[in-house]
């Protein structure tokens, strides 16, 4: 790692003469710049996607994981007794911070979207709901289920894990895909720089022959190419990164917390620093790719 840093620093310690020995190449230089820029632009979005889905997974896992619901469906005359029994059990259950039976008004509000506000719940056998808030340590749902089964036959515990799990899983997978995209973008850039470097080396075979003839080492020759491509990747990726960040910044915001996956696509807090690393990564990738390409090509030439 230190050797890499040293070599990189040599790239930036300019030797204007070493730069000039390789003739300027207009068109391919533009292409490398453009490609590095486009890749960085895409990488900014992949990064935003990864970070946003990571946040989402954490939030869903956290919020839903800390609450559970008990539903008591019993004959009307036993409902009250069973509810009280369940609350008693919950009071003595480890990992339960608080438990509270929903009032009939609250239940009516929950059902309103389906039945409207006109209907009186008294006429329906609506189950009683109990909201359970867990401590950060969490509770043991299986144990609680056993105790409820023994004492409150009409109770069903729903710890939300059934529908929480796929959501968290989807968000995690999305984050994984985002990171995979970033790795692929890096690999594509390496491939592209390798191709461009090969083309440049082949186009300059005559220059390389002359340099070898007058006593240039492979290192010196490679340096001229490496410097060029590293700086191109760095400047191209910087431009792409700035544009990408602007685009992310201009994404419409708003919506409430849970529905905000699309509107929440962006960077928060210190995450804004991460995209700044992309141009440096691009430079490192270009450096390594050009170095390998130059080594290979120079070995083949006498």
């Amino acid at each position: 790692m230190r050797r890499l840093a040293k070599r990189l620093s040599r790239v930036f310690a300019s030797d204007p003469q070493a730069d000039r020995v390789v003739p300027p190449s207009g068109f391919t230089a533009q292409l490398t710049l453009f490609a590095a820029g486009a890749m960085a632009f895409l990488a900014v979005f992949a990064l935003a996607l990864s970070l946003a889905s990571g946040r989402l997974a954490a939030r869903w896992g956290d919020e839903l994981g800390r609450s559970a619901t008990i539903r008591i469906a019993a004959p009307a005359d036993q409902q009250q007794a069973q509810t009280e029994a369940a609350l008693r059990i919950l009071e003595t259950t480890r990992g339960v911070q608080s438990a509270r039976a929903f009032t009939s008004e609250e239940q009516a509000a929950l059902l309103a979207p389906w039945f409207g506000t006109e209907l009186s719940l008294d006429a329906l056998p609506v189950p009683q709901l109990i909201e359970v808030i867990e401590t950060s340590g969490g509770m043991d749902p299986a144990g609680l289920r056993l105790r409820l089964a023994a004492e409150v036959p009409g109770a069903v515990l729903d710890d939300h894990s059934r529908w929480r799990a796929p959501l968290v899983k989807a968000a995690s997978r999305l984050r994984f895909l985002g990171w995979t995209a970033i790795v692929l973008i890096g690999a594509v850039m390496a491939a592209m720089v390798t191709l461009a470097a090969h083309a440049a080396l082949a186009a300059n075979a005559q220059v390389i022959r002359v340099l070898r003839l007058v006593g240039a080492t492979d290192d010196y020759i490679a340096q001229a190419f490496i410097r060029r491509f590293t700086l191109r990747a760095l400047s191209g990726a910087s431009a792409g990164m700035v544009l990408g960040m602007l685009a992310v910044l201009l994404m419409p915001r708003g919506g409430d917390e849970t529905a905000s996956f699309l509107t929440g696509l962006g960077f928060q807090g210190w995450h804004w620093i991460l995209p700044l690393v992309l141009p440096l990564l691009a430079a490192v990738v270009a450096f390594i790719a050009t170095r390998l390409a130059a080594r290979r090509t120079l070995e083949e030439l006498s």
Binding site: V21, G215, A216
Partner: peptide, 15 residues
């Protein structure tokens, strides 16, 4: 692409 003078001095530069 380099003038004669720089071509003549090339061995100095590369070393």
């Amino acid at each position: 692409h380099l003038p004669v003078r720089e071509n003549v001095a090339l061995p100095l530069h590369v070393s």
